[in-house]
């Protein structure tokens, strides 16, 4: 089992905490899904202290917290945000996002590698939100990352695994590296497919939070991710073009 910076995840589902209809529904989605990792963020705080009640609720979930650098567009911004997140959330884990394209929210992989190099040097355990590019993966690992998180499709698009070939190539190129499909998952079948490819987890938010019934969708995603994980471990058969009889022919009655 591949470990995330020395941590065994009890479940292959990581869930975001944004966009739920209410805090109670968010908490129930975590409870029924068994998701062991929650992504969180940082935003400006005022005298009202809105962030403090959110933090209290997250702590009650009893899950591992993975803060992100969402919305950052430069190395400097991402590195400063990571430092703030480490202090607030008291964890070396950071989901490193450096966005390069406004409409697709595609990562700026050049700045991503540079930010990852700086942060790993400062003791962070970096979970880089990246593309499925093999060379980018290699550079991120050389920069000190021990996990890769390629997108399946643009954030919030729900399009699933748009480049399954690329994701499979990444899996076979880095057999020992924990890999997470982060972003783009819309349906449980997408989550199952990612896990069938041998990925170690899926990270999703919108598909659950914006579903008509987020709790039921969280349950479905968790079941699908576990099913895909079991299937990968079970070593599935290869598809073939022609039929092959599953019922033995020997001993069949001669009736013609």
């Amino acid at each position: 089992m591949r470990r995330f910076y020395g941590v065994d995840l009890r479940d292959p589902l990581m869930l975001g905490t944004a966009q739920y209809p209410s805090p109670a529904i968010l908490a129930e989605a975590f409870r029924v899904s068994g998701a062991g990792v929650a992504t969180v963020s940082l935003r400006r705080e005022g005298a009202g202290g809105a962030g403090q009640s959110f933090w209290a609720m997250i702590r009650e979930l009893g899950v591992r917290v993975l803060p992100n650098t969402a919305g950052c567009h430069s190395v400097k911004e991402a590195v400063t945000t990571a430092h703030m997140a480490r202090e607030v959330f008291d964890t070396p884990w950071i989901k490193l996002e450096v966005i390069g394209h406004t409409d697709s929210l595609q990562p700026d992989v050049f700045q991503l590698v540079e930010a990852a190099r700086i942060l790993t040097g400062e003791g962070f355990q970096v979970f880089p939100y990246c593309t499925e590019d093999l060379v980018v993966g290699e550079r991120l690992l050389a920069a000190g990352c021990e996990v890769l998180m390629p997108w399946g499709a643009p954030i919030g698009s729900g399009r699933g695994l748009t480049n399954e070939y690329g994701l499979r190539a990444l899996r076979s190129e880095f057999p020992d590296v924990p890999l997470v499909v982060d972003a783009g998952i819309g349906l449980p079948s997408h989550a199952a497919r990612a896990m069938e490819l041998g990925y170690d987890a899926v990270l999703l938010n919108t598909a659950v939070a914006r579903a008509g019934d987020p709790v039921e969708m969280a349950r479905a995603m968790a079941l699908a991710a576990r099913a895909g994980q079991s299937a990968y471990r079970a070593d599935p058969i290869e598809p073939r073009d022609m039929a092959t009889a599953s019922t033995p022919v020997i001993g069949k009655a001669f009736l013609t």
């Binding site: 975001g16 905490t17 944004a18 966009q19 739920y20 968010l26 992504t39 969180v40 963020s41 940082l42 935003r43 400006r44 705080e45 202290g49 809105a50 962030g51 403090q52 959110f54 933090w55 997250i58 803060p67 992100n68 969402a70 703030m84 202090e87 607030v88 959330f89 954030i155 919030g156 938010n205 919108t206």
Partner: peptide
């Protein structure tokens, strides 16, 4: 946080204060 009481502000400083928030 450990340096906040020693960090003196200057005219025109831009200060950001952030707290935990929902995120994906």
């Amino acid at each position: 946080s450990a340096l906040r009481s020693r960090h003196m502000l200057a005219e025109g400083d831009r200060i950001e204060v952030v707290a935990p928030m929902q995120g994906g």
